[in-house]
Design a binder for these strands. Structure first.
Lengths: 255, 255
DNA sequence: TGTCATTTGTGCGTATGTATC
DNA sequence: GGATACATACGCACAAATGAC
């Protein structure tokens, strides 16, 4: 789904300034999360909503469709729209617990490439890449932004084996996750992704890139993409300023 | 217009019998999975698709919308529709980040309880617990330590519904995760755990508890334990000093 | 830099199909 | 059967983002 960020709203009553359906969406969303329409209860019909909001059926249906995408309601032809969950899950963060979701994330944000360079890794970097020293890699430095947001969401360094250098060149030109390009262009198959998350603080470089002060807490997410033999095909280091990002995942018990 | 009895079109191999958009959807889907439109390439424009399929823009957009929901394409205003994946699967699942692992962690460390108190939650805390204000909960404050280490690994606040207060009393006396105690003593069953990870900085309280300076980066892991109906049975807020803890997980592709 | 054609996003009105009650 | 309510579908118009010039 889309971030749906609206431009500040015109003070007074309705805080809804963006698209027309946003007003309907916000109102219904509030009804649900605040419990005015409980789980199992039905929302008003499309026609009633058209009247209440003086909007066309298209607009109302767009709002309902988004509620459905959020998993808050279920719709049944001939019956109506039933509230299925009141999960107040915030929307300004990402749930990345599957590769598909990483791809989703990649395509809903924009990557602005700052530099692409070949490097011979050594020292700590070689350790990070689980690579012997003096091996050639390509290093891509980039900022990830949300549409309409000025401050970047994330400072990213992506490392790829030098053999895949032309993929590095293509990063950012289309809204596709890097791993997906690797798989399609080189016939590779990612079998496993190892994620590591920790907190650090911003050094001078990061502070400058992310427009924060030195020392600001940073959430670092490092992903190693491995093939079935355990070879490292890509390493991405994502640094997020505190408060701009939250990593969320769901563990479900099977059986 | 009568979409009802479609004249089967000139469709020789028209296996598409359902709605009009299904034909468009199937054709585009096949183009993608069969690789006729590769990852990173663009689909035809809406207008071109209208012509090709002799369908209205509504119909074409419905098909594109579904491809988007499947995660196969990304659409950008002014730009077009780009193929982002050739398979809808991408099914990775959490191999090493499971309920069992949380239990492992709990039993390999020691919990030192600092305080147990009943509280009526309100404001931000109520929001955190997804609980109505003025509801009674039990709050347990504790430090988690590794054996033989002096500095604590983590500052923890656990919230439980007041009904389970005696579990709170028992926390720390045996090396079992709190959720396991809840399950065995009350016959509850945790169906889902939602984890949220973010970075903040240490306030005075945290700094003192964790023996770090104020402002030190902190990795906060919040877990909501839910039953099958979505009721919150436990909320744990774990604050780790930077450098003392790293959250690691592996996503494995199942297909 | 800004203009301009292209392309998707939003929105309206209308009509018919089809599932539910 | 009939009434209700959502699903599908057409045509039109303008807004907003993009990319090329």
């Amino acid at each position: 789904m889309k971030p749906a960020v609206r431009p500040a709203a015109a003070a007074a009553a309705a805080a809804t300034e963006g698209p027309r359906f946003q007003e309907v969406l916000d109102a219904l969303h509030a009804d649900i999360v605040d419990g005015r329409v409980g789980i199992g209860e039905r929302l008003p019909t499309e026609q009633e909503l058209c009247l209440r909001f003086s909007a066309s059926r298209y607009t109302v249906r767009e709002a309902l469709r988004r509620l459905q995408d959020l998993g808050l309601i279920a719709r049944r032809q001939g019956s109506g729209s039933v509230v299925t969950a009141a999960r107040p899950d915030g929307r300004f963060h990402n749930a990345l617990s599957s590769l598909a979701e990483i791809g989703q994330y990649a395509s809903s944000t924009r990557l602005e490439v700052l530099a692409v360079e070949k490097v011979l890794v050594e020292g700590r970097t070689a350790e990070l890449l689980q690579s012997p020293p003096d091996t050639p890699w390509v290093r891509v430095v980039a900022l990830r932004r949300q549409p309409e947001e000025r401050t970047p969401l994330c400072y990213t360094e992506v490392f790829l084996p030098a053999a895949y250098a032309d993929v590095a060149q293509a990063i950012g030109t289309f809204p596709v996750a890097v791993y997906a390009v690797l798989e399609s262009r080189y016939g590779l198959r990612i079998a496993e992704v190892v994620q590591s998350i920790e907190a650090t603080s911003a050094d001078a470089n990061l502070a400058s890139r992310l427009s924060v002060e030195v020392g600001t807490p940073i959430l670092v997410v490092i992903r190693h993409y491995l093939d079935a033999e355990g070879n490292v095909l890509e390493v991405a280091v994502n640094s997020h300023a505190a408060g701009r990002y939250r990593y969320e995942m769901t563990l479900q018990r099977t059986g």
